[in-house]
Design a protein around this nucleic acid. Structure first.
Lengths: 114, 114
DNA sequence: CTCCATAGCTTTGGACTCCGAAGTATAAAC
DNA sequence: GTTTATACTTCGGAGTCCAAAGCTATGGAG
């Protein structure tokens, strides 16, 4: 296996290598990430407190971290209105919605296996 | 919103509540879980060391834990042959393959966004 | 003028998860 | 008797998650 003549990594599965926890998948492989995409996608836009209400078992800091990561990854947009009290709205970007579309069958099936 | 007359939880999204990290999704929301299903599904059956070779960045103990969880969830079958040296084969169950089928479009899209 | 309310977070200390490295079990081959 | 092989388990430390409290700003009640 440690053959120096090998030209394909061992992690190559049918022509695709999934091993170095790739961008989107590594973000998804964290707590509440999948649900978060699905929840935001179920609305045009959501405020932080609304997201919290949809995910009552997740801590504030975890939701905050996931949102930062998703924004960084270009999957979620954050729109801040400079009012008092402050208002911030989160929505899926075009890429985020593509992701959501691919997560939907998964979530439906998962819900049916409960 | 904090109406005491409310009869549906706030986490209810379009008739489905994804909030209490449900069975399959909670298992998937852990490191390497998604890849593991996909890798096992790309073969009829795999041995432990082969899985490790496909996921070189994951630790032995993490792979072992994921496999235990998947077996517990009925998504992966473990077949042990009492030989020396020992031999163990992992394969997806019918449910596991259903899951894999739903993960495939996700992984393909994720790979294309790199 | 002081205090509270509101929204969206950040911070804190403790618990849980993941890591690499080393150890366990077995028996046949050398 | 030491080595080899496979499939793990165990270990201490590092990273991730938790609930609860604190922070920012301003407008309104007392």
């Amino acid at each position: 296996m440690a053959d120096t003549t090998a030209d394909a990594p061992a992690c190559d599965v049918d022509g695709t290598c999934y091993c170095p926890l790739t961008g989107v998948i590594s973000t998804l492989s964290q707590k509440y990430a999948i649900q978060l995409v699905s929840i935001i996608g179920a609305h045009d836009s959501l405020r932080f407190a609304e997201i919290e209400a949809h995910l009552p078992t997740a801590s504030t800091s975890t939701i905050s971290k996931r949102l930062d990561e998703f924004e960084e990854a270009g999957l979620v947009s954050r729109t801040q209105y400079n009012e008092i009290p402050p208002r911030v709205e989160y929505a899926l970007t075009k890429d985020g919605d593509e992701l959501r579309a691919r997560l939907e069958p998964l979530l439906e099936w998962a819900a049916s296996t409960e």
